[in-house]
Amino acid sequence: MEEPKNLQAIMGLITHSGNAKSCAMEGIQEAKQGNFKAADKKMEEAHNELENAHNSQTSLLSKEASGENIEITLLMVHAQDHLMNAITFCDLAEEFIDLYKDK
C-alpha cells in the first residue's frame, strides 16, 4: 500500500493536537491541587503544541493555496477533528484554571 500523501503534516496535526489536549488536562489537574504555577506552565506547553499543530496545518493550506491538489482523506478529517477539539479543550481549560484561582 502506498503511503498517503502529506502523511507527515497530517500526523503532526494529530500528534501535536493530542499533546496540547493532554497538557491542558494536566493544567486543570494542577490547578485543582492549587499548583497554579505548574498549571500555567502546562498551559504554556499546550499552547506551544497548538502552535506546532497549526504549523502542520499551515503547510497543507500553503500547498493548496499554491495550486497543489490536496487529497482529503479520512485521516486528514480525523486530524482536523483533533485540532479543533484541542483548541476548544485548551480554551475551556483556561476557564477552569481561572475558576480554581478565584476559589
Rank of each mutant, 00 (worst) to 15 (best):
E3L: 12
P4S: 09
P4K: 11
K5E: 14
N6A: 11
N6T: 04
N6E: 11
A9S: 13
I10R: 03
L13K: 04
I14K: 05
I14N: 02
I14V: 14
S17E: 10
G18K: 06
A20Y: 03
K21A: 14
S22A: 15
E26M: 11
G27F: 02
G27N: 05
Q29W: 01
E30S: 15
E30K: 15
A31D: 08
N35L: 04
N35D: 03
N35Q: 10
F36N: 05
F36Q: 04
A38Y: 00
A38K: 12
D40E: 13
H47E: 15
N48R: 11
E49Y: 06
L50H: 01
L50Y: 01
E51M: 10
N52Q: 14
N52L: 12
H54V: 02
S62V: 11
K63R: 15
K63A: 15
E64T: 03
S66Y: 01
N69W: 00
I70G: 01
M76Q: 12
V77W: 09
H78Y: 10
A79T: 03
D81F: 10
M84Q: 04
A86M: 03
I87S: 02
I87H: 05
T88K: 08
F89V: 00
C90A: 13
C90D: 07
A93K: 02
E94K: 13
I97P: 07
D98L: 11
D102T: 14
D102L: 12
K103G: 14
